[in-house]
Design a protein around this nucleic acid. Structure first.
Lengths: 338, 338
DNA sequence: GTGAAAGCGCTAACAT
DNA sequence: ATGTTAGCGCTTTCAC
């Protein structure tokens, strides 16, 4: 592997001149250097450059689950913005584990110039870490109480409330929720939005209609099974994220429960295949790619020093996509829950 | 940010001793050093370490499309293996672009110790790059002609052939394929496997039944539309990957074509939601997570110097999962294609 | 606009 | 088992 001295020698200049040329400054021997770089297939050693300058030309995107289509969309948005800039984008998966997130972030902190983070939980020690390292961070989708950081969020509470209103409007009173972990921003906000939304309409959710799961498919599956095993099962269920919705649908399918005749279901987060399912799934949708775009812009602005001093907090709104997984409660059961 | 000298001073030892301690060697002042590290919240600067030792403690996984559930599974397998080791896993997306892949790989080559690569095409200059850098690479899913590398593949041809046999066995003769790019390993192998599989059964695919798309959802959608617009549309279609299958299904749905009554469809690659679709989708499945596990093991073995000198080439087999998207051709049309 | 030289933080010889 | 020292490849004063 050639180094900068090899290039300098071949081009008949000093290493300083080569370095300047590489950084885009105007130098007399530009052509000769370009030629030497090409002949030797020279690429600057990233480690040496970082060590000396403190700049890594890379950012990290840390997400709990790359498998989740929502994060895939987020990443897509981030990359579309970063593609044109000088920053490499590294994706890091934490598998919804706080410990893994912590150790992984501690490691990459020294390898990147900024981080876009969707933290595993709200009891996260990670941000303290990052703050100490002094590199900019943008929170995506999830937020931390207390500390103020740049963040791009969605109106979780509003979206969940809309789901409650919609279900109530259809005539349901026996409404259940399969919520995410209450120590995550989306888990807590969607849960509260849905429950208070229902309460405001005079519908109280009994304890057994409140299932707290883990944002994963298996969790949604189990939760739905528990709901179905109840002496008086609900007539409508809200699932707080896409993966749990899939799990719930599988449970329904395996128990031969018909949707929406026997049970109505609304999910938070659209699914690419939602329209192809039977029945087509009614969901609360949000702009995932745009969320990534905005997060990336925020981070890039910080890195460029353009950012305003105070943390920015962007909240995107959701919308209900009505398809066919909800209808009025079954005749024999309507209103029975009151 | 504290450095190793700060720690050494505080613990009353030399930097060399601290360095040894950090690398796990037995030192007398272990307790004092541990304490100093903790007090200062010291973390070694990755750049300095890499520069000096040439080791990055990181590997990169380069894939064409993180959005594709197949790659998500692959990544899951890779991470499960690497979790316990000293290597960070960075995921890099190339958006199915050769140019992007090339520039991205050129960049990360100097930041990681090894690469697991699913190359965008077979005309790739990337491997030459990597070879020059001298770091180990394992090919996943896709392969390059000529050069021999470690690789973990699936029996694309066999799987596609099985699809042809299955469709023919149902009585179809007007069989079409929506294939992927023929300059990618899976694109070419699945295409040839399907076409020759059909030929061996005495069924020739007319040109207009051969649609070459791009492994993306939109491509599958367009291809299916073209097929449906034919004067004599096929009675059965094979889709060479999951994303194109989704696109094709959407096209069918929008044109009100009933599956499988009007048209049978088999996809390559299972979909998490395949069983929930209407009708449940029949597919050629393959072990995606296992593919990642094996690729990671191969790479780790190379990094540890354990690998056998010759490149390993692992080929996993596929299996047909029969659900309900295929049936015999419509009565009025059967055999008409001959 | 250019070159000489120092030094980023760490690890690996080498010596003890 | 430990300390001393050189130097990885680059960028950045500083002097010209």
């Amino acid at each position: 592997m050639p180094n900068i001295s090899d290039v300098a020698r071949r081009a008949g200049v000093s290493t300083a001149t080569v370095s300047r040329f590489l950084r885009g400054q105007h130098v007399r021997a530009a052509d000769a250097i370009r030629q030497a770089v090409e002949d030797l297939a020279y690429r600057p050693a990233a480690a040496a450059r970082s060590l000396r300058s403190g700049i890594h030309y890379a950012i990290a995107v840390v997400v709990p689950d790359v498998t989740n289509p929502f994060f895939a969309g987020l990443v897509k948005g981030i990359e579309s913005v970063c593609r044109s800039g000088p920053y490499n984008v590294f994706l890091v998966n934490t598998d919804e584990s706080v410990d893994l997130e912590d150790s992984v972030v501690a490691d990459i902190m020294h390898r990147v110039d900024g981080i876009i983070l969707a933290p595993a939980t709200e009891q996260d020690k990670t941000p303290a870490r990052i703050k100490q390292a002094g590199i900019p961070v943008v929170f995506a989708d999830r937020e931390l109480p207390g500390e103020r950081f740049d963040s791009v969020l969605v109106d979780n509470a509003g979206g969940a409330r809309a789901a409650a209103v919609y279900l109530a409007g259809l005539g349901h009173t026996r409404i259940a929720t399969i919520s995410g972990p209450l120590n995550t921003t989306p888990g807590r906000e969607r849960h509260e939005g849905f429950v208070t939304g229902a309460e405001d309409l005079g519908i109280a959710l009994p304890d057994e209609y409140i299932q707290i799961a883990d944002f994963r498919e298996a969790g949604g599956y189990q939760a739905m099974l528990r709901l179905l095993a109840l002496p008086e099962p609900p007539t409508a269920v809200f699932c707080a994220n896409n993966l749990m919705t899939v799990g719930a649908l599988k449970a329904l399918y395996s128990m031969r429960v018909r949707v929406p005749q026997d049970l109505s279901i609304v999910g938070f987060d659209d699914l690419d295949l939602a329209s192809l399912l039977w029945p087509p799934l009614t969901v609360i949708d949000r702009p995932t790619v745009e969320q990534g775009v905005l997060a990336a812009r925020l981070l890039l602005a910080r890195l460029a020093g353009h950012g305003s001093p105070e943390p920015q907090r962007v909240v995107l709104s959701t919308r209900l996509i009505e398809r066919a997984s909800c209808t009025a409660p079954p005749a024999g059961r309507a209103g029975q829950g009151r």
